[in-house]
Design a protein around this nucleic acid. Structure first.
Lengths: 191, 191
DNA sequence: TCCGGTAACTTGAAGCTTCAACTAACAGTA
DNA sequence: TACTGTTAGTTGAAGCTTCAAGTTACCGGA
């Protein structure tokens, strides 16, 4: 009966706020937000669909295999791999168990410190990623990169970086983890 | 043994492609992509966390309640609601069952055409959204909008729109569904 | 009025993620 | 050597999503 006057922001507040922050989004802000929500729901689904169809794996599994393939010795500590793949340690542990069953990854106790576990990409695993990667990169191009003008790609980088800075407070490091570097005695995270 | 030369794009291709499209991403493209992946993994998690903590519901459930609260008569057809909430009909059906159990939504057979089912927001449901919305909008502001300069918000809108155009082919309509409009005899989707 | 076709859901099972223990290994201290 | 605390990782259960049927209601002929 009176909740439809500010679409997409939910109903009007019972008590109008007088805070420093405007309580609702402007039309432009709301517009951008609604579309961004669409992207972060539909884009992952599209990537999963492509990988599932062409390779029978999820996007998260792809990231795990891909990050391992980039690491020196195809080896990473579970906890570093979890950060690189954007997942929790628990999620990674379950997924590595599955990937182990499929023969693409193997666990090894870290020699010298038994607390750590290394995940190692097997030869079959490496072959699998090498087979999958071109198709996946093509999909990323098709769905995202080629949809944008070059300056938009830069804008996207800056915008994503700014959002990540809020989502993971103090995450200037984001996207700058070990990757090609040495096997990282410890991921360099802020304290 | 030779897969670490192009970080974050997977290993090099066995057979170098000579296609029209460059097979790999440039450094700038890769950079933007890695960060975008971070956003679409971590941002939904952050939104879910806020809503779960403050209201005990998921982001998808919030969208369902919110879209209903904006609809005339707090009523929408299941299939329209599914589109507006960015989910499959099956997912929506399960979620509505849960929301019904909690007393926030009610199902009604569409009078006149028994094939359709209407989801209706109850008074308790409306009260719930009204209580939740301000906190959620504050989180969206905190995590996204306030992290960006005004021109970046516009860029984000355009970029998201461009990506959605690829992810859901022919989706110029995206973000422009019923919302405040009449109860939509049928969602206007491209054929 | 019957019959095939189709669109709108619903449902149950399988699979994945999350959450909350729990275990294991080490570091520091006495 | 024992005791405490901390960090890495694992595991099982609960909950949600997806997938593949199944229903139900209607429409358009014959």
């Amino acid at each position: 009966m009176m909740a439809a006057d500010r679409p997409d922001q939910g109903p009007a507040p019972a008590v109008p706020s007088t805070d420093a922050q405007p309580p609702w989004l402007s039309d432009d802000e709301r517009d951008a937000w609604i579309r961004l929500v669409g992207v972060f729901i539909k884009l992952p689904a599209a990537l999963d669909a492509q990988l599932q169809r062409d390779a029978g794996i999820s996007h998260f599994e792809y990231m795990v295999l891909s990050r391992l393939s980039e690491a020196s010795d195809q080896t990473l500590r579970m906890s570093d791999l979890a950060v690189l793949a954007n997942g929790s340690l628990s999620r990674l542990s379950h997924v590595v168990t599955r990937l182990e069953r499929r023969g693409w990854v193997r666990r090894e106790a870290c020699p010298g410190d038994g607390r750590y576990t290394n995940a190692v990409l097997t030869d079959e695993g490496l072959a699998k990623v090498e087979a999958i990667a071109p198709g996946h990169v093509a999909a990323v191009r098709e769905l995202v990169i080629d949809a944008l003008r070059p300056e938009q790609v830069e804008q996207l980088r800056d915008i994503s970086q700014a959002i990540m800075g809020r989502v993971i407070p103090g995450a200037e490091w984001y996207g700058r983890l070990p990757h090609t570097g040495a096997p990282s005695p410890r991921a360099r995270r802020p304290a």
